[in-house]
Amino acid sequence: MRALATVLVLVAVAARPSHAWPENHWGSQLPAGDGRELTVKLCSRCHNLEKTVVARKSPKEWERSVYDMISRGAQIFPDEAEQIVQYLSAHFRP
């Protein structure tokens, strides 16, 4: 009986809805690569990375997105922006 209860608890935990995941869950979905750490650190200051993980864009589109974020107030310096664009273009292309 106790074993069954343990299994039920484990199933319940595994079946948690996605909105209950910690906000850094999406950051953990980013693959390794140059610029990953910078991307996670700077982009997640303003938003979680769900929209980043699910997006598929060309390098030109990523460049536009990153600079669009800077225009909206993201605190990213020009040299850092280039690294982020390169990382996202390499790992989240169409």
Binding site: Y67, I70, S71, F77, P78, A81
Partner: peptide, 23 residues
Amino acid sequence: DRVRAGREAAARRNWNAQPIEWE
């Protein structure tokens, strides 16, 4: 100053674009 330099660079990238950029 560095943040504003980044923002200025972002604005200048598409300065003559059409449709017109907000910046």
